[in-house]
Design a protein around this nucleic acid. Structure first.
Lengths: 261, 261
DNA sequence: GGAATGCTTG
DNA sequence: CAAGCATTCC
């Protein structure tokens, strides 16, 4: 089974890239982030024509996630509150989580907040969001032990996940201690990085800023991840970053990552 | 010699259409209107690669005209004031006129004001502008008797230049009596419509509103013209509208018109 | 840098 | 409907 994750930075702007990529890469499930569209306006046509079932959780302008799956997914739920009914309302105003089950495997598609700048309000929101995700995962694990948690984490866990020029900067957003610590604590629930099962060296990235020719200089960050529970991690046979879509005209700033197990 | 006129509705948005069209249609001179760009930002590259000399008279956001010519043009001048130094300042704030000479023929490239609505301030500006153009032409004719005056006139001179659905409406902008009269008075200086030398029937248009599917219904207007002084008119061997560019993705609302003499 | 919104123009 | 602009976000 192949599960891909791709922050498309507007599914409507990227529709042709996504459909072309799926024709070349007919993965079982594609997890999209930053769809930036309300559900009523999601571009079903074209994706459904390729044989995908579509599950969406979107909003206007920002955020938004979607699951595309060849086989219908079971138990699709969106937001935190469906799993954690007692949380403060407001946490689901930003549409960032969608999950469903395929062949007994829970696919969890995340768009973790970016955080803007260290110590900003958005940074605090990011840490609070990750804290809530911790509880959310505990609940999920109690019923579905096999989870593929993937998406745009907006966190590079290690310095080798960041290009040389920036990996030395202390406390950059997406690599600050508090964010990394919060992510590590999630992973200690029993998740391992599929990409690092197969590739130890650095200079492999999934996101390059649009500015300052970051892509042509390969000044990127690996912030899109697939984290697998033990049984799935054991079964994983590959995890690759496909940088081709980043080379196209008007690309997303992210490129797809694909795990196979 | 082939002289084309094309209101491109932003030369930056239409750059690929223009370069592709010029490769298929290597005219001697291409007159562009509504370039919508300041001279510093005009996209020289690509057009110069096709072997064109570029003469521009642009402004931010609105209007703007340009001449592209295989051979260098002589005596290129822009605006009214270069020819009519005594006019009130202000008439050249909107960049709508550029002219130059090739093989003894003066090419005059115009973007006549649209006028918005009958009796509006913009309508009065249009009539004032045409009145000034009259004086401008008298001066030009005294030194260069062979003139190809072309561009977007924003006037359909006769009812056969407008699709059936609208040609009955009295006093529509672009076909009101005062505009037509102003244009006729210009032509009485000694200009004739190159297109009508070869084609008598209606239903030939050069502009279709983006709205209401005007192009697919062929609800257009013929408002882009080549008006020739007698000797050139005699020499004219064709004048055609090329509707192909209007069929492309993200087209201009106008399409090129080409005269050959 | 690119996509979103809301604005103005044609 | 499709340009432009200014603004916000990442």
């Amino acid at each position: 089974m192949k599960i891909a994750s791709w922050n498309v930075n507007s599914v409507r702007s990227r529709l042709e890239h996504v459909t072309n990529w799926l024709q070349q890469n007919p993965v079982d499930v594609l997890c999209l982030q930053e769809t930036k569209v309300v559900d009523a306006d999601f571009p079903h046509t074209g994706l459904e024509a390729l044989g995908y079932n579509i599950y969406i959780y979107g909003q206007k302008s920002y955020n938004g996630v979607a699951l595309l799956s060849k086989k219908p997914l079971e138990q699709v739920t969106t937001g935190f509150a469906s799993i954690l009914p007692d949380i403060e309302p407001g946490w689901d105003e930003q549409k960032r989580i969608i999950t469903g089950i395929i062949d007994g495997v829970r696919i969890l598609n995340l768009y973790v907040p970016n955080g803007s700048e260290i110590d900003s309000e958005k940074y605090k929101y990011k840490l609070g969001w990750l804290n809530l995700l911790h509880k959310y995962l505990q609940t999920l694990l109690s019923t579905t032990p096999n989870i593929c948690m993937c998406g745009d984490f907006n966190i590079a866990l290690e310095d080798r996940d960041i290009h040389e020029k920036v990996s030395s900067i202390k406390n950059h957003i997406m690599s600050s201690d508090a964010e990394r610590q919060a992510l590590k604590e999630l992973l200690e629930l029993g998740f391992a990085d599929a990409f690092r099962k197969f590739t130890e060296e650095g200079e492999h990235f999934s996101w390059w800023d649009y500015r300052t020719m970051a892509f042509s200089r390969n000044r990127g960050w690996r912030i899109d991840h697939h984290y697998l529970t033990p049984e799935l991690y054991k079964k994983a046979i590959s995890c690759v970053i496909d940088i081709e879509p980043r080379k196209l005209e008007k690309p997303s700033d992210h490129t797809p990552v694909i795990v196979e197990f």
